[in-house]
Amino acid sequence: MRQDIEFVSAGTTLRGWLYTPDGASGPHPAVVVTHGLGAVKEQYTDDIAEALAAAGLAVVLYDHASFGASDGEPRQEVDPWT
């Protein structure tokens, strides 16, 4: 099962998805999945999250600040120092 999530990190709202195993009650072990800088959650990491959830894990998958559904300005700019 996938649901939309959002959380605040360093004052910026980040958005993503929470995957949980279908038909299983929790709690579940969990992992965080995200791309390196410059890509968004829909670029194949959703396939990885689905496979991990099918294996019994909860998965948090999100877009980095200023990318995809997450807030942040300027858009699509990578600054590893902030």
Rank of each mutant, 00 (worst) to 15 (best):
residue 20 T to D: 02
residue 60 V to E: 02
residue 50 E to H: 12
residue 51 A to K: 15
residue 65 A to E: 05
residue 2 R to M: 11
residue 3 Q to H: 13
residue 45 T to H: 10
residue 73 E to I: 00
residue 30 A to E: 03
residue 10 A to Y: 06
residue 81 W to R: 14
residue 59 V to C: 09
residue 64 H to M: 04
residue 26 G to Y: 08
residue 55 A to Q: 14
residue 78 V to E: 07
residue 10 A to K: 13
residue 64 H to D: 01
residue 71 D to K: 03
residue 24 A to T: 08
residue 47 D to G: 12
residue 33 V to M: 07
residue 56 G to M: 11
residue 63 D to P: 02
residue 47 D to Y: 12
residue 76 Q to F: 13
residue 36 G to A: 15
residue 39 A to G: 02
residue 58 A to W: 05
residue 71 D to W: 05
residue 52 L to M: 13
residue 22 D to E: 15
residue 1 M to P: 11
residue 77 E to K: 12
residue 44 Y to Q: 11
residue 48 I to A: 13
residue 18 L to E: 12
residue 38 G to W: 09
residue 14 L to G: 02
residue 29 P to K: 14
residue 21 P to D: 12
residue 27 P to K: 14
residue 41 K to M: 12
residue 11 G to V: 01
residue 55 A to N: 08
residue 17 W to T: 05
residue 32 V to H: 11
residue 46 D to R: 15
residue 34 T to W: 09
residue 16 G to L: 04
residue 40 V to Y: 06
residue 61 L to P: 00
residue 28 H to A: 03
residue 12 T to H: 04
residue 32 V to M: 14
residue 32 V to D: 11
residue 33 V to K: 13
residue 53 A to D: 05
residue 26 G to H: 09
residue 30 A to C: 12
residue 43 Q to Y: 08
residue 50 E to G: 09
residue 32 V to I: 15
residue 37 L to W: 15
residue 40 V to N: 10
residue 12 T to E: 10
residue 10 A to P: 00
residue 76 Q to D: 15
residue 19 Y to K: 06
residue 9 S to R: 09
residue 54 A to T: 07
residue 74 P to Q: 10
residue 49 A to K: 09
residue 4 D to S: 15
residue 21 P to E: 10
residue 68 G to A: 07
residue 55 A to M: 10
residue 16 G to F: 04
residue 22 D to F: 12
residue 4 D to R: 15
residue 38 G to E: 07
residue 63 D to M: 06
residue 51 A to P: 00
residue 81 W to M: 12
residue 8 V to Q: 05
residue 41 K to N: 02
residue 20 T to S: 11
residue 40 V to P: 00
residue 23 G to M: 07
residue 30 A to V: 07
residue 2 R to A: 11
residue 64 H to A: 04
residue 66 S to I: 00
residue 79 D to K: 14
residue 62 Y to M: 02
residue 6 E to I: 00
residue 81 W to K: 07
residue 5 I to C: 09
residue 46 D to Q: 14
residue 9 S to P: 00
residue 56 G to F: 06
residue 54 A to D: 14
residue 59 V to Q: 12
residue 75 R to E: 10
residue 75 R to P: 08
residue 74 P to D: 06
residue 57 L to A: 02
residue 43 Q to G: 01
residue 6 E to A: 13
residue 14 L to H: 01
residue 20 T to G: 03
residue 72 G to T: 03
residue 21 P to N: 11
residue 50 E to V: 10
residue 48 I to V: 15
residue 75 R to I: 07
residue 63 D to K: 03
residue 43 Q to D: 08
residue 57 L to M: 13
residue 24 A to E: 15
residue 49 A to I: 02
residue 32 V to S: 09
residue 36 G to R: 09
residue 32 V to K: 14
residue 47 D to P: 00
residue 21 P to F: 10
residue 62 Y to D: 00
residue 53 A to W: 08
residue 56 G to K: 13
residue 27 P to I: 03
residue 28 H to D: 07
residue 13 T to A: 06
residue 73 E to P: 01
residue 2 R to I: 10
residue 62 Y to W: 13
residue 8 V to A: 08
residue 56 G to I: 06
residue 40 V to Q: 15
residue 6 E to R: 07
residue 19 Y to W: 11
residue 21 P to S: 13
residue 3 Q to F: 01
residue 19 Y to A: 12
residue 36 G to I: 02
residue 31 V to C: 11
